[in-house]
Design a protein around this nucleic acid. Structure first.
Lengths: 188, 188
DNA sequence: GTCTATATAGCGATAGAC
DNA sequence: GTCTATCGCTATATAGAC
């Protein structure tokens, strides 16, 4: 056989993609290099371009993969506002350090080309999923407003490290957020 | 005289600082180099380090200068929610391209050292100013929540370029935001 | 007070060997 | 299928001339 010993192409591609999700989410598009991502995947930088064409190509697949699997939003419209508020508070807790799509967005958005890829991914996956669960938001500005609030909360609590948000009681935080989400989702 | 012909030190420092505000706000901390900032100020890159010690030192003064002068928030507590909503919609309009402190924050926050400088500036100036106008928010999580909403709206509308937010009727947008701000500022 | 020139390091992407 | 080596470029920061 002339096939490789240690890895096949599909596994290498997958390893690079996973390392890309981690690298871009933790450091943002401009904050991580292809060398660093390649090293996390156990390969050389050359293979990133080999399999994904360019750093931007890898980023596009990372956004697709990261936003395609749903983790934040539940599927029950009745308790949606409360569930989203609770999940948001839990996942932005001081000691939590998951790989959330909102962190990927916030940390990569300053790069204009990354921002365009992110906009497409957000609208195709996150916003579309929210409209599936809460169809009454369709045609209004309130779905986008929900996403704005979620993103802003992630920003202030985890990226800026707001003293007020990190010192606040989590039940109070969740209650305030629930009121805001309720206003957006059930304005009647 | 042995003094310089074309500029004195104070004017040069001021020119660099103004170019820094523009550069960091438009492109973020990692998105602009000291060469580019120096060129906008009409000097060489060396003088940036001469007057501000380092890129990080310049950024710290830029944050201080940008957040010290108040532009978004009005001073009348009675109409605060409506005024903030109106100003936010107007300043994030598709064709507006001002140098807002929130853009400076959003575009520079991915850099950890910039994020710490921004946190200090936000809490010292923006949050403190909001608490001066609306003292009933003191001791609650709602001042930080107001800032989260403002930042998230800036992000989705101007950086991500949300189709929904940019296509929406501006009066509807302002009304939705006003409801949210009212809930936070006058929860009774 | 401001310049040119440079030190040192990193980036994304590619050529060519095996 | 994966490597080493390298190209061409840019970054921050500094040394030394005038």
């Amino acid at each position: 056989m002339t096939t490789t010993r240690r890895r096949d192409a599909a596994a290498t591609r997958e390893a690079i993609l996973r390392a890309g999700v981690e690298g871009f989410t933790r450091h943002g598009y401009d904050g991580v290099g292809v060398r660093e991502i390649a090293q996390s995947a156990g390969v050389t930088a050359m293979l990133v371009n080999r399999y994904f064409g360019s750093k931007e190509g890898l980023f596009a697949e990372v956004v697709e993969a990261s936003m395609a699997d749903r983790t934040v939003l539940t599927d029950d419209p009745a308790t949606l506002a409360r569930d989203v508020a609770a999940a948001l508070v839990r996942r932005t807790a001081p000691h939590a350090d998951g790989l959330d799509p909102f962190l990927l967005m916030l940390r990569s958005a300053p790069n204009p080309r990354a921002a365009e890829i992110l906009r497409a991914g957000i609208e195709k996956h996150v916003e579309a999923h929210l409209l599936d669960i809460a169809p009454e938001l369709r045609g209004t500005d309130r779905a986008a407003m929900v996403l704005s609030l979620v993103a802003g909360f992630w920003l202030m609590r985890k990226m800026i490290g707001s003293t007020a948000l990190n010192g606040a009681d989590e039940r109070t935080l969740a209650r305030t957020l629930e009121q805001l989400f309720t206003l957006l989702m059930h304005p009647g």
